[in-house]
Design a protein around this nucleic acid. Structure first.
Lengths: 204, 204
DNA sequence: CCGTAACTTGACCCCGCGGTCAACATGTCT
DNA sequence: AGACATGTTGACCGCGGGGTCAAGTTACGG
């Protein structure tokens, strides 16, 4: 790879990171090129697709952010506090960082590394949930799909609220958490969706 | 108004009702005209704007649907059952009918009749909430803005799930309701948003 | 220093959106 | 029946999205 191409790729990566962080994962590719000070042809030349860009720019970041949150949750002495902290932390990520919001909210099947991150996060969420369920603090009918569903519905408004300077999304999270304690649970008739069903739901 | 114009207006109204019901309130106006078998110029000629169309086609429907739900809630002997039934019923409307989903989720300031419907619904929600709060069954820190916030985040995924043939959105509603019982409440630090703040949030 | 391979560019394609308007058609009233 | 008002139409505008590619430029190895 020639030196100038490398420079351009770097510029594009940082521009993409900025714009994904400001506007979410579906900014126009031409706008990314514009911000990088490069022709959009070059972007297509160097990356070929939005998905490739996502894999290079967002996947690692998301992995560490979500991984950290999960790690903290499992390291927490109380299973419930771990779970509740995890939910809150992820919601905060969503509210503050549009890119993170979209990672949990949209699916880009061709971004394989990103998809892997999603799968890992789902697995991590399952552990966190499992721990709190076994512990008796989390209601026993709550599944990782339910959590994913909640995250997905939560993200857009939380982001809007946060960018309007409000923390009000925290209220919704609190209400939800209060409903997830085992003590609060009333029986539910409906089955949860499978992870695949939700994934299909989130495809663009 | 000439007879043919009346015919065309009628056709456009029904086409608009259909498409709003199938795809939500932001279908392309040209597509509405296409479905009505009429030039899009005619649509602009007869209505002038999407908002005018909304006022003529969606406002009444929404008013009766939401009004009915509110009426039923207040007629319910149990304040909590009234409240919970109202929430569930509205969520069902959102899941089943994209137009209804958008009425609660988006704001079209220039559609004055529709906006009036929204305001009325908000007021109705306040009564329903107030009744259940006074009754001691609903947690006392829950406000109509919180409910609106919940509806707004809930609508898109619920619609997607429903159109994929799943009822799973009901689970989220149940979790939420379980967290709204007075008995389940833990204190919350954050203030709710004002109705105006949320309205601004929902503007297109 | 020069030739070639690697790279960049921007004009161009297609699409669909909202919106306007001159030219045309058709109801309607005398 | 005829004339005028009332409606209709579709081409046209500007915008911005994704995507491609011939022509031009630039880095780099010999």
């Amino acid at each position: 790879m020639r030196a100038d191409a490398q420079r351009n790729a770097a510029r594009l990566r940082t521009a993409a990171a900025e714009l994904f962080g400001e506007q979410g994962l579906q900014v126009s590719l031409k706008e990314i090129a514009r911000r990088a000070g490069v022709s959009h042809g070059t972007l297509y030349n160097l990356f070929g697709s939005r998905e490739a860009l996502l894999d290079e720019v967002v996947a690692d970041l998301a992995a560490t952010r979500l991984g950290e949150a999960a790690r903290r949750a499992l390291a927490c002495p109380g299973a419930w506090e771990g779970f509740a902290g995890y939910v809150t932390e992820v919601c905060e990520l969503q509210a503050v960082d549009p890119a993170m919001g979209d990672v949990l909210t949209r699916r880009f099947p061709d971004a394989s590394r990103l998809m892997a991150v999603c799968d890992n996060s789902f697995a991590a969420a399952e552990s966190i949930i499992e721990r709190a369920r076994l512990d008796g603090s989390l209601r026993s009918d709550f599944t990782a799909s339910d959590l994913l569903f909640f995250f997905a519905s939560h993200a857009p408004l939380a982001r809007a609220a946060a960018s309007a300077g409000s923390d009000a999304w925290r209220r919704g999270v609190s209400f939800m958490l209060d409903g997830l304690r085992a003590a609060a649970a009333k029986p539910i008739a409906v089955e949860p969706m499978s992870a695949e069903q939700i994934n299909r739901l989130l495809m663009p």
